[in-house]
């Protein structure tokens, strides 16, 4: 079965501008670019949740934006239901858009402050369907109820809503066109503990009911474990490990994944902590180290780590980019 969505060696490089960038170019005889996403491949199957995790600056949000064509990849292919969306005209891409939606990180800032909830949820229907006013209204109301927003909120403006309610509006807006894939970029990170639990449960319920697929981007590993069937770990623009969720959380193969998991505080005072720590901070995506990108920080690094790293299957369905596994 072909994948619902496939990224094949996708690169997103941003050119540096200004005098400093020009000086660099002159001195080092190469153009300065930020290699935000530097060759990423993964697939999302219909109806499944793929978790994409990594720390700030690893490029995970840029992957999301490339997937929904908010940035154009510098290289590689993004395919949705077999169609290469990078080469589509804007008009042709509009046909794809209703099936490929996104929920952004900041629930309040991603809503239009001048539109009512009802109007915002109807907006995608105006753009992508030829439904009449009454049908749009019915459809929007049905979706609002489905995401747990009472209809008494339908005529309110974003500033009259709480953070959790705003995020439900965002989810309703993404859901209203019956998408097959929703890209969720840190949908719960701005929410309080009790709201977070409810949004997570809502997302899972909607996925099961509609057979949705999610690309769930987060740095909150506990939430990823709860929602995702498979997890991909990003570091400095590349995927370093991908595996079924249980395999990844119970036996991480890549040292970066291991360090990331070891750093998560576990709500159990008696839990034994893996003392595995990386040194230093994430390098700049302008000066990416050769060979393994982690080697300067990795306590296990060997001379071989300076060589290009193969991305191998270390167990069935479990891939890692490390010389030492």
């Amino acid at each position: 079965m072909p994948a619902l969505c496939e990224l094949d060696d996708v690169k997103v490089h941003f050119p540096l501008r200004g005098a400093a960038a020009w000086l660099r170019t002159v001195k080092e005889h190469q153009a300065s670019v930020v290699r935000a996403v530097d060759g990423i491949s993964f697939q999302v199957q219909a109806g499944e949740t793929l978790g994409l995790v990594g720390e700030s600056g690893c490029g995970k949000s840029t992957v999301a934006r490339a997937l929904v064509r908010l940035v154009r990849p510098t290289g590689g292919h993004v395919r949705f239901e077999g169609t290469e969306i990078g080469s589509l005209s804007d008009q042709a891409f509009n046909e794809v858009r209703p099936h490929l939606q996104m929920v952004f990180q900041d629930p309040a800032a991603s809503l239009n402050p001048r539109l009512t909830v009802r109007r915002m949820v109807e907006e995608p229907l105006r753009l992508h369907t030829d439904l009449g006013a009454a049908e749009r209204r019915d459809r929007a109301e049905a979706v609002l109820v489905e995401v747990g927003l009472g209809l008494e909120l339908a005529d309110r403006y974003p500033h009259e809503l709480s953070g959790g309610q705003c995020q439900r509006v965002n989810i309703a807006r993404a859901l209203v066109t019956n998408p097959r894939l929703i890209v969720l970029d840190e949908p719960t990170s701005a929410l309080d503990v009790s709201l977070r639990a409810r949004v997570i449960l809502l997302l899972e319920e909607l996925r099961q009911r509609h057979g949705l697929a999610y690309l769930f981007i987060s740095h909150d590993l506990a939430t990823v474990r709860y929602l995702a069937a498979r997890v991909a770990v990003m570091y400095l623009g590349v995927i370093v490990e991908e595996a079924p969720a249980a395999a990844l959380f119970d036996g991480p193969a890549h040292p970066y994944t291991r360090a990331l998991l070891a750093a998560v505080p576990v709500p159990d005072p008696d839990a034994r902590r893996d003392p595995f720590v990386l040194s230093g901070e994430i390098p700049s995506p302008i000066d990416i180290p050769t060979g393994c990108r982690l080697r300067a920080r990795c306590p296990l690094a060997q001379p071989v780590c300076a060589q290009p790293v193969p991305y191998r299957e270390v167990a069935p369905g479990h891939f890692a980019a490390c010389h030492l596994v």
Partner: peptide
């Protein structure tokens, strides 16, 4: 309720949101 409402990384347990709102 608070202890039960958080997703766990160390084990797979059901998560129950706290009823009501502050």
């Amino acid at each position: 309720a608070l202890v039960r409402s958080i997703p766990r990384i160390d084990c797979e347990v059901a998560m129950e949101p706290i009823p009501g709102a502050v």
